[in-house]
């Protein structure tokens, strides 16, 4: 059966881990502790201890497999390559739609000038330009939605870094760990504006409050 001296050694390792880990324990450290725990079971072992030994052996194998699986995902590439490229592509979408919207607005403003020059068609042309202005609202919403996606990608990038670090994988540019978030934030993690917690951006159809619902909410204050 394991000696008390070995148990004491294991206790000390666990105590040291608890003090140094700041609430986050690396998988490599867990693996080491499990191995140490298995060492305590050497010698005369009961059937129960043997079962525990096998469970622990399985756990070590599982941890090693998970580590290899995560390494094969190449988290460094996700951080250094895929996510920056994805954000560049999204920025390009915003730029292109903004340029297109401004071209459309240029044309609408010319139509408005024509409405003044041709009063017999004035009302009709003004109606048309109003519709164009209303439809051009999409640009603002598109930009805000894309920004939300960019912030979500940054959040994923951070989580990938956390996961890789947890499994003892080295990432040169890994971000510092942050607290858990139930939902990917719409703003950047370092947003210091006092009402940043209220900035959710455009909501999905069905989730968003429409103008009538907002009017009703405002009226409830009266």
């Amino acid at each position: 059966m394991a000696s008390r001296a070995v148990d004491k050694d294991l206790d000390q390792r666990l105590e040291a881990l608890a003090q140094d880990s700041d609430g986050r324990v690396r998988i490599a450290d867990i693996k080491e502790v499990v191995h140490a725990l298995m060492d305590t079971l050497r010698g005369d072992v009961t059937a129960t201890e043997l079962r525990a030994y096998r469970e622990l052996e399985g756990l070590v194998h599982y941890i090693e497999q998970a580590r290899q699986d995560i390494a094969s995902l190449r988290p460094d590439e996700i951080q250094s390559d895929y996510i920056p490229k994805a954000t560049d592509e999204l920025d390009a979408i915003v730029s292109a739609t903004e340029q297109a919207t401004n071209d459309i607005l240029d044309a609408a403003e010319q139509i408005e000038t024509m409405a003044e020059e041709h009063p017999e068609m004035g009302d009709r042309l003004m109606e048309v330009t109003t519709r164009i202005y209303e439809a051009s609202n999409f640009q603002d919403i598109t930009g805000q939605r894309v920004n939300k996606v960019v912030n979500m990608l940054k959040h994923i990038e951070q989580k990938v870094g956390d996961l890789a670090r947890t499994f003892g994988l080295e990432l040169e540019e890994a971000a510092e760990p942050q607290g858990e978030a139930a939902e990917a934030p719409a703003t950047a993690p370092d947003d210091e504006r006092p009402d940043a917690d209220l900035l959710n951006g455009p909501q999905q159809e069905g989730t968003a409050k429409n103008q009538a619902e907002i009017d009703a909410l405002l009226a409830s204050f009266d």
Binding site: E134, N137, D140, L198, L217, L218, F221
Partner: peptide, 27 residues
């Protein structure tokens, strides 16, 4: 604004907003 959650409308109302339009809006 595109911010259309109740918490946003309430915060704006409590801060003294005169009215609130959610984007996208029409004329």
């Amino acid at each position: 604004t595109a911010e259309s959650k109740s918490e946003n409308v309430i915060a704006a109302k409590e801060a003294g907003v005169s009215n609130y339009i959610v984007k996208p809006f029409n004329a």
